[in-house]
Each structure stands twice: as C-alpha cells, then as structure tokens.
C-alpha cells in the first residue's frame, strides 16, 4: 500500500474522521416518517435511535439562515451565528484579561514564597473546583446595585474567578522550576530584585505562564455559555437557551458546533503563541 505524504494525510485523516462522524450522527439521529393511516390521511411521526436528535442534514436546512448570513441582525434575538459569537467573545476577552491580570501576580507570589503557598494553597484548592453556576448568583448579588452594568459585571466576575486558576497554578509551577543556574547568574551579577524579575524570572517562567493562559482561555470560553444563560446577556449561550425554550433543537446543535469550533480555534491560536515563547 502506498503511503500518503504527511501533509496530505494530516488533511485527509481528520477529513475522514469528520465524514465518519457525520454519517454516524445521521444514522442515529431522528427522522420524520410519513405513514398512511387506515382512514387514508398521512401522519408524520419520528423514528430513529435518538428520535429527538436532529441529524446533520436537518440541522443545516433549518439553521442555514444563521450561517449564510453570519453577521446579520434581523432582531434582537434573531441574529447571525457569528454575530452572537462575537458578543460572547467580547465579554470573554474582558473577563479573561481580568483573570490573567489577577492570576499572574498571584502565581508569582505563590511560586516565590513558601509561606505564602502554605497559607493560601488550601484556599485556592477549595475555590478552584467551584462551578461557574455557583459563582454566578454571587456575582449578581455583589453587583446588583450597579444598575445597568450589573449583568456585565456579574458575568466578568464569574469568568475571571473561574478562569484564573490554571494561570495561577501554572505560573507558580513555572516560578518554582526556574533553574538555580539562572538565579545564580543574577546573584553573581548582583542584579537588583526588579532586574532579576524582569530579565530572568519572567522570561524563564513565560512557557509555563502561556500553558496557564491557554488553559484559562479554555475555561473562560466554557463559562460564557452558563453565564449568558443565567444573566440573559445577548450572546451565543443566550441564543442556545432561547432556542431551547422555543423548542428549536436544530439551533442547539448549531450552537454546540459553533462553540466547539470557536473553542478549538482559540486553543490553536494560544498554542501557537505558546510555542513562540518556548525557550530553552
């Protein structure tokens, strides 16, 4: 058997995987069957392994208007899928920025000081697994007196507080992993604390920080759907929830696919950045 060149198989194999998945999806999804009743009328009923799961073909037919005009704004709740995604991305970007701004210094403190770690590591370990669904109501309460901004602030709070932990922990690990040799260079040259931080510690920690940043971005994107469902902010999560309430299951599938693709692209972009900062 002839082997494909790697670049071709790198494209071909995922393509095959996608096709196989679509076929399987189509096979298990529900379809509409028409049957002639004894009284001569035609009746439609659903059949299939998962009767209520829309298949890929149905999904495409029912949701194409969101996809072919991705930036259209027909009504507040009837907009192109990428326009909804854009709203969500903006709020995620803000919350993510807060998460990094808080998480990076906190990670440095944890990495630098053993006593600080002993003091606060248990707290972090307790707060870290708390679901965004649990943080969200607290956020709403905390910012309820801020008027029109309340929803947005609550959303930012939830994203930041959920997404910062990988940044905190990876930065701390990175700081602890700085080779003693590098620190000895700083000591031998008598670099000031600030110089040591800027010229040695931060560059040495960057690869770890970016691993944290990548994981944090994944979480921030994960959280947005829950946040939008609860706050009713316009965005892809909110669209998904509305369509669920309207019984339009094809739109749910479209949202899931979109959220997945966007998450994948964000992760790719971050790992490209991460590789650029890989040193040593």
């Amino acid at each position: 058997m002839k082997k494909f060149p790697p670049w071709l198989s790198n494209i071909l194999m995922p393509f095959v995987g996608i096709v196989v998945t679509l076929v399987l999806w189509q096979a298990i999804s529900g379809r509409v069957v028409q049957s002639r009743q004894p009284d001569g009328t035609m009746e439609e009923s659903k059949a299939g392994l998962l009767k209520d799961l829309p298949g890929p073909i149905t999904t495409w037919e029912k949701t194409r208007k969101y996809v072919v005009e991705p930036f259209a704004k027909r009504e507040e709740l009837d907009q192109g899928i990428l326009r909804f995604t854009w709203y969500s991305l903006v709020i995620v970007a803000k919350g993510y920025a807060i998460a990094l701004a808080l998480g990076t210094p906190l990670g440095f403190l944890l990495g630098l000081s053993k006593s600080f770690t002993k003091m606060f590591d248990p707290i972090i370990q307790i707060l870290r697994p708390v679901s965004p669904l649990a943080w969200m109501p607290l956020g709403v309460v905390l910012f309820s007196n801020t008027g029109r901004a309340a929803n947005e602030l609550a959303a930012l709070f939830t994203i930041a507080v959920c997404a910062m932990w990988p940044t905190v922990l990876n930065t701390a690990v990175g700081v602890r992993a700085i080779p003693q040799d590098y620190l000895n260079v700083a000591r031998v040259l008598k670099l000031s604390r600030w110089q040591t931080l800027r010229r040695i510690m931060i560059p040495a920690t960057l690869p770890y920080m970016f691993t944290g940043y990548r994981l944090s971005l994944g979480i921030a994107w994960l959280v947005i759907v829950a946040v939008e469902m609860l706050t009713g902010r316009i965005g892809i999560g909110n669209f998904l929830w509305n369509e669920y309430n309207n019984g339009l299951y094809t739109s749910i599938v479209l949202c899931i696919v979109t959220i997945g693709v966007v998450g994948f692209l964000l992760d790719r972009a971050m790992s490209l950045l991460e590789r650029r900062f890989k040193t040593a």
């Binding site: 080779p179 040799d181 590098y182 000895n184 260079v185 000591r187 031998v188 040259l189 008598k190 010229r199 040695i200 560059p203 040495a204 960057l206 040193t279 040593a280």
Partner: peptide, 20 residues
C-alpha cells in the same frame, strides 16, 4: 560577603539565558 560581579564566574555548564 556574598556574590558580586567583581568575580567573573565560568560555570561548568555555560548557564546562558536561552531567551537572550
């Protein structure tokens, strides 16, 4: 008392900072 740049040290491994 303590390290300082009045002594030039050549380490066993070059210990260059890889990002510079």
């Amino acid at each position: 008392a303590g390290p300082g740049p009045d002594r030039g040290v050549v380490f066993q491994s070059p210990t260059l900072l890889p990002w510079m």
